[in-house]
Design a protein around this nucleic acid. Structure first.
Lengths: 236, 236
DNA sequence: AAGATAAGGTCAATGGTGTTGGCATAAGGA
DNA sequence: TCCTTATGCCAACACCATTGACCTTATCTT
């Protein structure tokens, strides 16, 4: 840690860059997101980001202490976007479903960024806010604390895990665009039917399915199971 | 792609390296795994791997066309280890549970490697074998094909997604070893109780829970939900 | 057994990366 | 208006993956 990073709110002397740009944490994160979208996850580097901002790469170290910290900031931004405009209705199952799909969607809308950040738990404000919201929904719904914590954990980790997985797949295939459906079809068709009878028997269904995310299905199964537990608790 | 890579089974002239080591795909992958375990995921580089093997880094390109291909080979090796010794008993729920935990476990036993490879679907032999097995279990259990495909997809992606997520967490905290339990405890304790009442109320439970993987819980919920569907199908 | 062929190991070089210490300059407080 | 120092810039370091040319020697052919 060579140079101390000044926290954003304490910045006073905003000196414009040689090319006239006035930097800020926000500007840097947004530019990084744009670069990730346009040039892929390998396309983000201190040098390129610096160039895009019209600033020397080393200047970034005045704002983040290392690329890793920048990555975390990007993750926080994505979580924030997922929560924007989300509101609790009081129907716990609906609310959780909505939140899950939003998180998943926010990450998938920036797959290249998601690849870098999902799985990195940041502990930053907006992430904590999401945790608090989920716990609140479950406890209000009537789950006893131990149960609520268990389900909260499964729910949030499953959402992030699928977001990362699906984003990874998207980030990989996006370059080779041509994939649509036909790719899986041919992948499965290539396998010898006698050696892989079950795959062969469901070839069509598989090809149609594998182009979508399994997250909505997994999410609904998790929520259904939670509801069953809740009813069992009420009954017994 | 400058130099064509000779497939392993077609290799004839195995010339020992200057330091006397006879290379092979297997040896390289195993050495890479060992290096990942010992020096972390950032510790694997062509140069270091070459050094560890007693060979010039460029030699690796005779075996894999790029570090990316090596990564895929490592992933295939991990899946293979998960399947080693696994056998179907005929009780579908037990079998799937076992397989899921094995996959998850195999990845977690090499977290640094898992970070690199999970999420990269390879389509290599052992991976396809796992897919066929899962589909077989579900269809034999009585799930109609569309249902079987849906659940197969959710199951396998859930396993891989959690493996990647948990491995990532493990790979990160391993360097700073000291994390055990106390870290989460203090993380939650630091939050103002009036702003985060639900977190505050369940602080203890959370601290105890967050050190474990949510996968077993999520897996059981998915399987429970699948069983409910199967019974509904049989009844109606 | 001798020679030809080319697989496979090595060398050197290219253009990329994150990161740092020192320096210069201008912003904002006095 | 002057001083302080935050902040941008420069040059350098050590690392990275990858490649093309070269050389050596294991294997095949005759």
């Amino acid at each position: 840690m060579a140079k101390p990073v000044v926290p954003e709110e304490a910045r006073r002397r905003r000196r414009p860059t040689r090319q006239g740009v006035v930097l800020s944490e926000r500007l840097i994160v947004e530019t990084a997101l744009r670069m990730l979208r346009e040039h892929g996850s390998a396309g983000l580097s201190a040098r390129r980001l610096g160039a895009a901002l019209g600033a020397d790469p080393s200047t970034l170290y005045r704002y983040f202490d290392g690329m890793d910290a920048l990555t975390l900031a990007i993750g926080e931004e994505l979580i924030g976007r997922a929560l924007d405009g989300w509101a609790v209705t009081g129907q716990w199952r609906h609310d959780l479903r909505e939140l899950g799909l939003r998180i998943h969607g926010a990450y998938l809308s920036h797959p290249q960024a998601a690849v870098l950040t999902a799985g990195r738990v940041t502990g930053r404000p907006r992430e904590i806010a999401a945790d608090e919201a989920v716990l609140g929904i479950l406890r209000t719904a009537g789950f006893p604390d131990p149960e609520a914590v268990l389900i909260y954990h499964a729910f949030i980790d499953q959402s992030l895990a699928f977001a990362a997985l699906d984003a990874g797949a998207l980030a990989l295939t996006e370059p080779s665009r041509s994939s649509d459906e036909g790719q899986w079809e041919s992948t499965y068709a290539r396998l010898p039917a006698d050696e892989y009878p079950h795959i062969a028997a469901t070839r069509r269904l598989l090809a149609a399915r594998m182009n979508h995310s399994a997250y909505p299905v997994a999410l609904d199964m998790l929520l259904a199971s939670a509801e069953a537990r809740l009813q069992a608790l009420r009954a017994g």
